[in-house]
Design a protein around this nucleic acid. Structure first.
Lengths: 184, 184
DNA sequence: TTGTCTGTACCGGCTGGACGGTATATTTAA
DNA sequence: TTAAATATACCGTCCAGCCGGTACAGACAA
């Protein structure tokens, strides 16, 4: 065991959360190892002990978020078993919630692009898996993909602070999304 | 013709095109002033003469692309005057075209935001203007915003190389988008 | 017509700071 | 005492921006 009662796993996730916090507060280009060190309370050496390179840190972030998103969708799915497409319904719920509470996913992806443009893999795994689930639940592909990409659009444009939607617009859009899922 | 026979406007757009080319070929992190200098044939000083800071260069790129997108939508709109919502129809066309022919541009757009997170302004102007046009053309807001954000989603996820759609999926989605515009 | 002067466009070496990563010291649980 | 875990000092590289220069075009005078 190490210096304190902490173990590496705890340290890792603390560091990851700090990294996300840095991005949320100051944007992707502010994600430096020094900034993460300061934010987390670890020293630079401590951060680098847990994530030997910056790439590892970024990959860790993407994996962390991807897992979390996937988990939340799985959970929400249980409440939509009556829906025409439970997975899509769940994704709508989770997306709306993430939009309102924490716009950090797409922003983390941006950090990815700033350093190494092809660290999207862990994220892609999750989306591929969700896509298969959707395909198993409906054969109205066109409609399903419109809903899907609409959700992606909301995520990304919000993360880019490029959304022109008002609260009211968003509400209307989500209402329509939920309606159209049941038309599948 | 001597050196000073060139005019600044031409130099500027040459440099902008080179910057886009650098990003297209090597990704966002490769966008350095030196790289743009080499690509364009200008010296570093020459680039900095036309764009006093890197931020100015990036802002220039975004403005350039935003204008181009807006222009193409305006043009395409003329061919959709019979549509329920000519602006949205035009945006669908232009988006599909950009997706297929020049994902480089979408990627560049995104890449710039990795460097300077608050570049949304020039882009936002264009989207705001388009949004007003859409609002004037339909009162089915919910449906319109779903279509809108779906287009954004396609743009962004492609730019992130995070799209899980096959060619066939995309085609189906666009077919559905065109169908649903006429349902407004 | 020629020489000087001024403004515009562009060149390229230099530097200071930031940042990723290393080397090494230090602390603590077992 | 040992090894995991964390701290600190430091190094090398990269890059934005600065700055002292050059090339050329037109204006204007003599």
């Amino acid at each position: 065991m190490g210096r304190s009662s902490r173990n590496t796993q705890d340290s890792k996730s603390e560091i990851l959360k700090s990294a996300l916090e840095v991005i949320r507060r100051s944007g992707a280009p502010a994600l430096t190892i020094d900034a993460v060190a300061e934010e987390s309370g670890f020293s630079k050496g401590g951060v680098l002990y847990n994530f030997p390179t910056k790439d590892a840190l970024i990959t860790g972030m993407v994996e962390y978020l991807a897992k979390q998103f996937h988990g939340e969708v799985e959970t929400a799915r249980a409440e939509h078993l009556a829906s025409k497409c439970p997975t899509l319904s769940a994704m709508i719920d989770v997306t709306e919630q993430w939009l309102r509470e924490r716009q950090d996913v797409a922003r983390a992806m941006l950090a990815t692009k700033a350093d190494k443009p092809d660290l999207s893999e862990p994220f892609k795994e999750v989306t591929t898996s969700l896509k298969k689930a959707v395909e198993a639940e409906t054969d109205q592909r066109g409609k399903a993909w419109v809903i899907w990409s609409s959700l992606e659009g909301m995520h990304f444009s919000d993360a880019h602070c490029a959304s022109v939607f008002t609260e009211e617009d968003l509400a209307a859009a989500f209402r329509e999304l939920r309606r159209s899922v049941e038309e599948l």
